[in-house]
């Protein structure tokens, strides 16, 4: 990992010095132990801050979209001939590159507006899982030694195998190497266990209807409608989200349980063919709602019905904007 950090900093510095990118989005060491946080670098000297490790959680494609769309908005007030492009560099793992591919497919920005520094990924640490493994106490200090996490809490020291603390989506990840990149740093990462990606979903599908509904309502009752999932999601980039629209008002804003369920249901359904399973929504959720149980089902359905994996190839068309003559239609009601 040391080596990757060094190369990453060198490349980032070079890109900034040569003005190949205006701003670089990456990760820096977080303020809390065993965390990393997104950072924006414009000064080549600051490239020294960059890190790439198992604590880099958030999908940075969100910031790429935000930066470019804000820049474009600001350019509206500039004379057409004086308009400038903003080129954003990004440190991207597999799922981040999938999100960028998705943005490109959806014509959100041009390929020339983003420079992708691909990094191999062996999964990131799920903060909530780690805090449970650490015994629920605050983590005072921590370090990664080989494949063991050394965690110091108020109760004492603990060694936790890194593998146990990885996020659920990382363990069964199919695309842990970038699908699209301008330059690659480090060797290809070994594959995870993609053959098990739907095991959990298949088990849930086989439960009786009442139990599935009970689980859905139980999970959605935890939701406090903070919209952190939406803010973190790279696929959620609408200027005005349906929850904030008042004419028409799609969903109520009160504390009614049904409104919350409808909000979640609609957001989940907007992810058809668009969820890259980066786990950003799950990791930012303050209430620990099991969103992945439902998002992964959508991913499974889209693959089964339309043979598409969101953002896996630049040549694909978004599955909901095309159709094929022989799409399944066994669900159509015909009395």
């Amino acid at each position: 990992m040391e080596n990757i950090d060094k190369k990453l900093r060198e490349e980032a510095k070079r890109l900034l010095e040569e003005k190949k990118v205006g701003v670089l989005v990456g990760y820096e060491t977080g303020t809390l132990p065993l965390t990393a946080t997104p950072c924006f670098i414009t000064n080549p000297e600051d490239a020294e801050k960059l890190v790439w490790n198992a604590f880099c959680t958030q999908n940075l494609a969100k910031f790429v979209h935000d930066l470019i769309s804000q820049h474009r908005e600001s350019q509206k007030r500039v004379k057409p001939e004086d308009r400038k492009k903003k080129i954003v560099g990004v440190v991207a793992r597999g799922c981040t590159t999938r999100s960028i591919v998705l943005h490109l497919q959806e014509r959100q920005y041009g390929r020339d507006e983003v420079v992708i520094i691909g990094v191999p990924c062996t999964g990131y640490v799920d903060g909530k899982r780690l805090s449970v493994l650490a015994g629920g106490d605050d983590i005072r200090e921590g370090s990664l030694e080989g494949d063991q996490l050394l965690v110091k809490t108020t109760a004492g020291e603990k060694r936790i195998p890194l593998q146990d603390a990885l996020a659920g989506n990382c363990l069964t990840c199919r695309f842990n190497n970038p699908v699209l990149s301008d330059l690659m740093i480090g060797a290809q990462a070994p594959p995870m266990k993609p053959e098990q990606e739907y095991t959990e979903i298949e088990a849930f599908e086989n439960l009786p209807t009442a139990e599935r509904w009970a689980y859905f309502t139980k999970e959605m009752n935890k939701c406090i409608r903070c919209y952190a999932c939406r803010q973190a999601c790279p696929s959620c980039y609408c200027n005005t989200c349906f929850v904030e629209q008042s004419q028409p008002q799609w969903v109520g804003l009160g504390e009614d349980a049904t409104d919350t369920q409808v909000f979640q249901l609609m957001r989940l359904f907007h992810m058809v063919g668009r969820c890259v399973d980066c786990g950003s929504c799950v990791s930012v959720c303050p209430m620990g709602v099991d969103l992945r149980k439902f998002l992964k089902k959508i991913d499974k359905d889209v693959f089964e019905l339309f043979e598409n994996r969101a953002g896996s190839s630049l040549e694909d068309t978004p599955p909901l904007s095309i159709f094929k003559e022989h799409d399944k239609e066994d669900f159509i009601f015909n009395p």
């Binding site: 849930f204 599908e205 209807t209 009442a210 139990e211 599935r212 509904w213 009970a214 689980y215 859905f216 249901l265 989940l268 359904f269 058809v272 439902f294 089902k297 959508i298 359905d301 889209v302 019905l305 339309f306 599955p319 909901l320 904007s321 095309i322 159709f323 799409d327 399944k328 239609e329 669900f331 159509i332």
Partner: peptide, 20 residues
Amino acid sequence: MARRKFAALKRFLDYIGLEG
């Protein structure tokens, strides 16, 4: 496209526990 959206919606509603 409507057919595709509906295929996905029907499966999803069934999955979360609504009667198909």
